[in-house]
């Protein structure tokens, strides 16, 4: 009996200790509790090629994750001043089967893609995106510094030197296989990193595109522009969950 109580007590104690460590890991896992950005339908239309509930998602790609956006909200709670981030959240949720129109306002500069493949639009309705430029945006393509970038309107592809970030998304294993979304976001401000900031006072690019959300399940997105440090510039911010990566939950 004493043995049973002792062994049971030891098991209980170990369970409590391990569970406590587990809760700790889980809590720090998603670095900061960022509320999921939830999109609700605003009617039904045929934007996505068939009648589907329409939802809107508006996010931004900011050069300074420790700063605030236009609304005065922190871009990324506990952000790092050297690191860019997507905001106001990196997790989004949309209803299954809805037609999602995303607006990504891009405030960050950029230089060259590692792989020109990520300059090509994929997976959006019409395989195109719509770009509205604001302010003077100078890409790395410009031979003479100061020459404005020319992209605007509907585009299907951007040059590897015109890109600041990308929004690249694929399903989690087993969820609607074959889905692949790639949206290049053109450089804002100056590619050298000057004249960029988190608000509309700075040059920015507004990119709009639509895609049809599949059946229920989660999708993982990340940025494919090498905006980190180290090997292939994919270290630091690129390897830290939540800044340049996240999920879209189709519910």
């Amino acid at each position: 009996m004493r043995r049973l109580v002792g062994a049971g007590g030891a098991l209980l104690l170990a369970t409590v200790v391990i569970a406590a460590i587990g809760v700790g890991f889980s809590a720090q896992s998603y670095s900061a509790p960022i509320p999921v950005l939830k999109a609700t339908p605003v009617g039904t239309d045929g934007t996505c090629g068939k009648q589907a509930p329409r939802v809107h998602l508006a996010i931004g790609a900011y050069p300074d994750s420790s700063g605030v956006d236009d609304q005065g909200n922190a871009v990324h709670p506990g952000g790092n001043p050297d690191w860019p981030a997507f905001g106001p959240s990196n997790e989004y949720s949309v209803p299954a089967g809805s037609c999602v129109t995303m607006t990504v306002t891009q405030y960050d500069s950029g230089e060259l893609l590692n792989n020109a493949y990520f300059g090509k639009v994929a997976g959006t309705i019409g395989n195109k995106i719509h770009i509205e430029s604001s302010g003077t945006n100078v890409s790395h393509c410009a031979e003479e510094p100061g020459a404005p970038a020319t992209f605007a309107g509907d585009v299907t592809e951007l040059q590897p030197c015109e890109i600041g970030h990308t929004f690249t998304m694929r399903p989690l294993p087993g969820v609607s296989p074959g889905f692949f979304l790639n949206v290049p976001l053109p450089v804002a401000g100056n590619y050298s990193g000057e004249n960029v900031g988190n608000t509309k006072d700075f040059p920015h690019q507004t990119v709009t595109f639509s895609f049809l959300a599949g059946p229920k399940g989660s999708y993982s997105w990340n940025c494919e522009f090498p905006c980190g440090h180290g090997v292939a510039s994919f270290g630091a911010v690129m390897g830290a969950y939540g800044y340049m990566s996240g999920y879209l939950h189709v519910i």
Binding site: G22, F25, S26, Q28, S29, Y30, S31, L172, P173, G174, V175, G217, S218, G239, A240, Y241, G242, S245
Partner: peptide
Amino acid sequence: PNSSFLSPQTYNAV
């Protein structure tokens, strides 16, 4: 399958 107990970063660290 699609557990969100740990983020991918924490999972790799663990």
